[in-house]
Each structure stands twice: as C-alpha cells, then as structure tokens.
C-alpha cells in the first residue's frame, strides 16, 4: 500500500501565508504536468495577486498585467500551439479586473487552461471586498458585512459552462484529501483536453485565506467546506472531453 511520494522538483519554498490553499494547487498542477511528461513544454502564466508568489516555481512563465493573463496566454498559444499553457489567476484578477479577458477567452474557445483560485476577497492587498465575497462577509472595505440585498457572489464557471460550450469546466476545493484528489483528476482532464486541442478548459478552486478572514487555518478550511459551498457548489459543469 505504502509507496514513495515526493513533491515535484520544480516546487521551491514559497511565501504564501500559513494555511493558504495556493501551495496545494500549485503542487497538484506540477504533479500532473510531470506525470504527462510536459515539464519542458509547459508555460505557467500568472495573474496579479497572491498568485504572483508562484514565481517560486522553477518553470517557464510570464507575470502578466493585472487581469490580462487570459489574453496574454491566448496570444502565446497562437505562437506555440504544441506547448501546454496554464493561466493561474485569483478571483479578483480573473473575475473582477480581468472579467472581459476571461469571458472573451472562453467565448473564442481558446485552447488554454484557466485555473482560478477563489478565496472570496482581494487577498494580496489586504482582503478587500470582491465580486466573489459572500453576503454578510466582513472585509476591510465592507466592515459591516457585504449587503445581503445586493448582488450575489459571481459564478463564472456556471456562466461559461452554460453559454460558451467549453471543453471542461469544474469547481473543486482544497478542504480535504478527497477533494484534493478530485482536483487532481480535474486538472488531468483539463490538461489532456488542451493537449488534444478540444478548446477552453477551466477549473475554479475554493481556497482558504486564513490571514484575511481572521480565522485559524483549521476554521478557515471549515468555512470553505460549509459557508462558501452554499454559494459555490462543487462539481463538473461542462465536460465534452
């Protein structure tokens, strides 16, 4: 039963906060890339936000302008169609500042993989309210909680799955070992679909942000598993792989 397990070589110590979900997601991506033999034919583009800290990974990649990572990645994919491209963005980057680029990439059926990390606030700048913030959630710019009668948290994966005929769209979480294994299966599907040229693939990952939520890592994971999933149900929304 027991076997040797070691994190991929490209992963180096990073600067994320204790209990942050980004580290697990980065590891899952690199495990899949390594298992597919794509390490030397892979480009990881990063949006702006906490995901900038992923410069610690030793793979090729571009630090894109804020929100424009999908557009940059589409251009790079046109120039290198046989290379595997992943654009790694936060929710503030992909869903607020870069919403236009994200939706246009999906609409154009660009053959790229988008991985968004949803922690329901703008993490790097100190936890401001984003469009993904839950009603009632206290952030630095909504000290009385986000208004409950205002707009609801934005659900981009559902929107793309229902409107643009993507190759694969799913929402996963890093709340437990079982969900992390599911996330790995989704990433495998998305990368395989991209390499087969099937079109736009996207995975949203719910991740804890203990620092900005003001919770311990344990409570933050509990919050992901309970409160966040009322607004962000897990599962596969589109799959024609």
């Amino acid at each position: 039963m027991a076997k040797n397990i070691k994190a991929p070589e490209a992963l180096k110590p990073h600067r994320f906060c204790p209990g942050c979900g980004h580290g697990v997601i980065a590891r899952v991506i690199m495990e899949v890339i390594e298992s597919r033999g794509l390490t030397n034919n892979f480009i990881l583009n990063r949006g702006v936000g906490c995901c900038c800290n992923l410069r610690s990974i030793e793979v090729d990649g571009l630090q894109c302008s804020h929100g424009r990572s999908c557009a940059s990645t589409r251009a790079m994919k046109l120039l290198a169609p046989d290379t595997c491209f992943v654009t790694y963005q936060g929710d503030g980057d992909a869903y607020v500042i870069g919403l236009q680029e994200t939706l246009n990439a999906a609409y154009a059926k660009s053959n790229i993989t988008l991985i968004t990390v949803n922690n329901s606030n703008f993490g790097m700048t100190g936890g401001q309210m984003a469009w993904t913030t839950l009603p009632g959630q206290i952030t630095t710019t909504s000290p009385y909680g986000r208004p409950v009668d205002g707009p609801l948290p934005i659900q981009i994966p559902e929107m793309i799955a229902n409107s643009f005929d993507p190759a694969f769209v799913a929402r996963a979480s890093v709340q437990s070992p079982a969900e992390i294994n599911k996330l790995k299966k989704y990433v495998e599907k998305a990368i395989d679909a991209q390499m087969a040229g099937k079109g736009f693939t996207m995975i949203e990952v719910l991740a804890p942000c203990p620092t900005n939520w003001g919770l311990t890592p344990e409570k933050a994971i509990e919050h992901v598993a309970t409160d966040m999933q009322k607004y962000y149900p897990l599962g596969v929304f589109a799959d024609r792989t």
């Binding site: 040797n4 397990i5 070691k6 994190a7 992963l11 209990g19 580290g23 697990v24 070992p177 992390i180």
Partner: peptide, 19 residues
Amino acid sequence: CIGCGICYTVCPDYVFEIN
C-alpha cells in the same frame, strides 16, 4: 505512522516526503 501520504496531500508547504 502508516505512510498513507495524507499529510503530503494536504500540506501546502511541501514539508512531507514518504519513503
């Protein structure tokens, strides 16, 4: 320890190695 690898799966900081 039974070497199941769950700590490796959940650790965000790559602390664990199973061997």
